[in-house]
Design a protein around this nucleic acid. Structure first.
Ligand SMILES: [Mn+2]
Ligand SMILES: [Mn+2]
Ligand SMILES: [Zn+2]
Ligand SMILES: [Zn+2]
Lengths: 136, 136
DNA sequence: CCGGATATTAGACAAAGTCCAGATCGGCGA
DNA sequence: TCGCCGATCTGGACTTTGTCTAATATCCGG
């Protein structure tokens, strides 16, 4: 499967998002790369050729994508949020020194023995982050 | 075990930290409460009676405690870091709406099936965060 | 083409955190 | 006790990430 700008409109519509020029560019930045990107990185990518999208729009759009379930948020670096085009259940490997973030397939990972949730609470997600560092 | 200001000096020394007035107050804020506190909260607590400690010192001190392994960092809220006086292996339950953060004992939790680490990498820690929300 | 709803924008603003150069502290030797 | 000197603390400027707002632009049905 490869993600062209042309596919993006359909993908956005299928998530109930009105496909505008800016939204298509932002979705394309994320989906064509399949990488974890910060808002800043998204803005840099989208505005590479000629400035096309404002900071406000980048933030608004990423938040919209999040609400609509098109992307997922990864909170792992205290200084910025990463946006993840992969919304299937998976975990993360974070290289503390370089800031590199990669996926861990959830398929074979089993988490067991978690205590029952407090009453009236429902799980929104379980984040598992393996923090690694180069052997020094 | 209860954490008085008097104990703090010994605790700091045992972690190779020179116990100063400010460091004792900051450690006392964290350890006497056994709660997850942000830098801002620590500053507010320490400066309740009379202003005693500057912002720079609060941040410097928390970073020092972190380096010396006296506290642990919990990255769960995109807008601020929490500092955790509990350094034994444990996981976290995060209430997304209220921002409340609580501990999950690691004793009965088993995480299995993680893929082998890339060569030359060593695990620094595994963070498991259960994000929950009130049933609406 | 018109009018209203939706989307975009510049730039002001806020909050968390960093940095630096100067002031202060406090333990120790004389 | 006194003064020295490295360690520590400090105010405040600065940076970065993200939010907000009011004005403008775009889109679309009638
Ligand atoms: Mn989907
Ligand atoms: Mn006090
Ligand atoms: Zn991912
Ligand atoms: Zn904890």
């Amino acid at each position: 499967m490869h993600y062209t700008r042309d596919n993006m409109a359909g993908l956005l519509r299928s998530h109930d998002i009105n496909p505008t020029h800016q939204r298509i560019e932002i979705a394309h930045a994320l989906f064509s790369r399949q990488e974890h990107l910060s808002a800043d990185q998204v803005m840099a990518i989208v505005n590479t050729r000629h400035s096309e999208t404002s900071k406000a729009t980048v933030y608004n759009t990423l938040k919209l994508f999040l609400e609509k379930g098109l992307v997922r948020e990864v909170i792992v670096d205290p200084s910025k949020v990463f946006f993840d085009p992969n919304t299937s259940p998976h975990h993360h490997l974070y290289e503390v020194d370089s800031g590199k973030l990669s996926d861990i397939d959830a398929e074979h990972v089993v988490i067991s023995g978690l205590p029952p949730l407090p009453a009236g609470m429902v799980t929104e997600g379980i984040d598992l982050i393996v923090r690694v560092r180069r052997t020094s």
